[in-house]
Design a protein around this nucleic acid. Sequence first.
DNA 1: AATGGCGCAGGATAAT
DNA 2: ATTATCCTGCGC
Length: 806
Amino acid sequence: MKVFILDFDHDKEKVYVYGRDENGKKIRIEYDQPYYLYLILKDEKYLNEIKNKLDNEKYIKKYEIEKKKYIGREYTVFKIIIDQDNYDNLKKLADSYKMEGKILGKKEGDISIIKKFQLDQSIYPLNWYELDLELIKKDQNIDYYKYKKNLGIIDKKYNLKVVAFDIETVSEQAIPDPSKDPIYLITFYDGKDYYSIYIDGNSDEGYKVNSELELLKKVDEVIKKLDPDILIGYNSNNFDLYFLYERAKKLNYKFSFSWDNKNILYTKKRETSKKYKFVGIQNFDLFNVISGIFATQFNSETYSLDEIASEVLGEKKLDINFNEIYNIIFKTKDYSYLIKYNKKDVELTYKLYKHFESILLEISRLAGITLYELSGSTYGILVEDYLIKRSRDNNEIIPNKPSYDDLELRKKYTYSGAIVFQPRSGFYKNIAVYDFRSLYPSIIIKYNISPDTLKCDHEECKNEKIIADTSVGKLEVWYCKKNKGFISSILESIFNERIEIKKKMKGLDKDSEEYKILDSRQLSLKYIINSTYGYLGFPNSRWYCLECASSITALGRKYIMEVKDYIENKGYKVIYGDTDSIFVIVNNEKDGQDLLMDINNLLPRPLEMEFEDFYLSGIFVEKRSGEGGARKKYALLSKDGTIKLRGFEVVRRDWSEIAGEVQENILKLALEDKKDEIIVYLNDVINNIKNHKYPLKKFILREQLRKSLKEYEVSSPHVIAAKKYKDRGYKVDRGFIVEYIIVKGGEKISDKVRLPDEVKDNNYDPEYYINKQVIASVEPILKSLNIPIDSIGKIQKDIRSFFNNG
DNA sequence: AATGGCGCAGGATAAT
DNA sequence: ATTATCCTGCGC
């Protein structure tokens, strides 16, 4: 039977696989998945002793003796099958053998029973499989089967049934609280029709119910009718589902839309982040994925639906503010506009999901996880899931997660990273920028860097030593040259797979379905490839390897230095470089291309440099404090007139829009050789700030809370602002983005902090914004252009006359 | 329970 | 007035 797999669940006895058959009917497949773990024998001489012992332990259902690899070495292992309830008994036994030095330890006890089923049967979410099944019974909604055998994966298309939803509520106070405030309105959207349900108001569209309990019942009904595979929300885990769950609890209502008809399952991940699961249907919070996995690719300052939708789709939310919602719900009770607003939100959520669907599916498939698991994953988790999935191909036992003590120890270790060259500030012309194609992955592959190849026993492998610079000293290490490592070989295989996919794409129409799928596939491979180095140095990783991570950066430094020396010996001027890139002054673009060919003749494959681009001009600035040019800050002008900005205040959300805008304009003028216009422009801006000619939003500063409020030792402005939000009833936790404006009066800046709506009549502090924002951000640029500005900032009131005098 | 890595600039506060 | 420390957000 052909089955498309969507979800997994388990109870004490069984694993349950949820999916659909070819007719789209829901099915549940059950299987008696044994729980097992491995004991790794340290020496064959203990084999019989342990065997005899295991024979007499009554709680052990069964055990097998196998040959498995663990971190590259082959061992004899006991695969022990027990009831999960007896884990503690086995742990006691294993611990004592470990103490006596007879076994290396127990492994894979922390791999869930669902993951074990997936690994043993090679069945992962979001694929079609041909399965050998035995029918148990057929119900109206769902068929029940017993699992027999996996006959293989099938290449077949499946269209996920997608439904997006969003709720509206409001509070007498600022922030709605599910212990007090009901859900007034909820809308579902399946890409075709909207289903809006509301209480306590009037409207010509939507479905009115008499009570919130009726609303919840209707929610159940609508979800069952739409029968989605995936339910999308935007920040739904921390808001919409939180409300649905808490309100239902309060009203004693149990949802039954899950495929097992059970209520929504709530698990508290952390104090501040909630997680809800419904069996069968994937709970997918798009906000999590956007702010977690895709975050770096957006220019938006926040990850609000409004900002992300306008950046990705070019569409905005409808306009509404707190007072208007308040008025609608508590006074006019005319819901017409509120429903339109709600529908638009759901539509944007749906469209955003659709925009990313192809890549989301490919990442899930690659890592072997459900979409529910993906929504909430980080790069570290993705790499780990992928390695776990690949472990069985290599007959590798999966290492344990670190214990708490190990973790604390690992966190203390650090190591040297990359080199950043210090630039000389100034204005440059004809800049060629080269960068290594996947520097760290190439190094891992070339040097076979992997925890299992580290310091192998072969004498001949010790010839080529690497000095890794760590906080525990300089370590002399080497990697095996005879046997391929677990991680390095996996990386090599997906590296090559990606190249093959990209080759295939070249012959395809860019608008075709096939192209899009291949593109998503290569992109998801790229995510894994690029995160593997970081994963090796990540303290909580199963395959943590400090020596590996520090060897990789050491070799990175070696190669970038070699290339730099080579270029300089040829008589060229290197002006900057960071980690894997080099900026060189060349005569023209052709000259730059030729130089690159020479560089690549020098480099051993797979190491290779690419021509990132040729730039007409560029600006580097002095550091504001300390000596010399600032690293990680530059502006480049491309041939097509576009400007590449890095590191400047304009790209930082903790600076005001006005400062950024002025800085960007001045950089533009400078790069385009219109230096004489700068002074006039700056003069104009300063006058406008003084005269309050700009809208207040240009003066907002934004900063994120990186820890919980009480952990702060210093009352910095953003902490003061955060407290103001908290006093208003906002949930102010780690991750909260604080917005504030600086006003006149007070001694310290933190005395001058106000929330945007507290600032009346555009009454920000012009002095602060002129000196500490605008001038502070443009001063280093003017300096590097040799525009004299000694008195700017110090004698602010004289700025005008200074500029007028030229 | 956590939730790839290190290098760097630069502002604000607190300590000297 | 100067410096150390805290803190964020960036680059790669």
